[in-house]
Amino acid sequence: MRIAPLPEDLIELTAAWTGERFPDGRPKVADQTLRQLANATTEQAWDVLRKHGFHRQFAGGWRQTHPGRVLVGRAVTAQFLPHRPDYDAAVVAAGAREGHLEGDRQNSWIIETLRTGDVMVCDIFGKVKDGTVIGDNLGSAIAARTGVGAVIDGGIRDLQGLSELDNANIFFRDNDPTAIADVTLAGINLPVRLGEATVLPGDVILGTPSGIMTIPPQLAETVAVAAEDIRIRDIFGKLRLSQRTYTSAQIDVGVWAPEIEADFQDWLTKR
């Protein structure tokens, strides 16, 4: 068994992506696309993904260490399972073969794999008490390595300290003073679950005040371009509504009438 899959396994898992990859096989969505996605809303991304047949990419109901701050980055996934002694022994042995020290906590194994622009995505089955994947020490390591943050479907501790990290936003279910216990790391860069969403390594994570959107890498640029178009159209639509040029029924439709579209294109050119 392995803790992290081989590069060829990740390439097969994410075969829909044909662009650049990290040495471990994860898709590497361009930095420029990530910057563009930072301006996208949950609803804009949801609309594009739905049109491409991806109907279960949203997970809501989070707390954040920095409410209101948008989180965008490439997913490094990890899954924990309830502790079982014989399975844990097998994981420890596999971890040793892959260079992880037996004395290190398994949650730190994930952090050591992170790169700039990554988002650590942990599925710990919603566990909060004894399910606190990070505190402010490991949070500081995540901030230093990624400059982005993490999404933890479970708990954190040291919320006050984590809230003081200026270069990382952590999405989590709840906080608790206990330390992580009675769980075993099932693997790194596996398919994991966040609510109703399946997350693959290399997915783009878009975290907003609404929740988490998991964007397949092959659709990240499409979402970024469409979101920008929607944003500009929203500006125009609200302007014309405030001027009472058109009715709400005329603006709030899927496709504008030809005369409104022409007005928009003229406004866009002059803008």
Rank of each mutant, 00 (worst) to 15 (best):
G254H: 09
I180Q: 10
A75Y: 06
F172E: 06
L185Y: 00
N175S: 15
A226E: 13
V70L: 00
V72F: 03
F236R: 00
E8Y: 13
L159W: 12
D166C: 01
M213E: 13
A15T: 03
L239R: 09
I205M: 12
G149E: 03
D176A: 02
N137D: 07
Q265E: 15
V225T: 14
V29Y: 08
I111K: 07
T178Q: 11
T178M: 07
G53T: 05
K28P: 00
V192C: 06
I205N: 09
A59F: 11
D88S: 10
L159F: 14
R84G: 01
L190F: 12
K129W: 07
W17I: 04
V91H: 00
L194R: 04
G155V: 09
F171S: 02
R2V: 02
R115G: 09
L185I: 01
A93M: 05
R231T: 11
H100K: 08
V255P: 00
G202M: 05
A89I: 04
E259S: 12
K51Q: 10
V92L: 13
V91D: 00
A40M: 02
E228K: 14
M213I: 09
A4C: 11
T198M: 14
I110L: 15
A181G: 04
L190I: 11
H100Q: 09
A94W: 00
P5T: 08
G99T: 07
K51M: 06
G211H: 06
G154W: 01
R50L: 14
G53Q: 04
P7C: 01
Q79H: 05
L6W: 09
E112A: 15
R50I: 10
R97M: 08
G53S: 02
H52N: 13
E98W: 00
D86Y: 09
G237N: 03
G149C: 02
I215Y: 10
L159P: 11
E20M: 07
T247H: 03
G254Y: 07
E112W: 13
G195M: 06
I134H: 07
Y87H: 14
N189L: 03
C122W: 01
R74Q: 01
D252P: 00
I230R: 11
L241C: 05
E261M: 08
Q265D: 15
R21E: 00
E112R: 15
N137K: 14
A257N: 10
Q44F: 06
D136P: 12
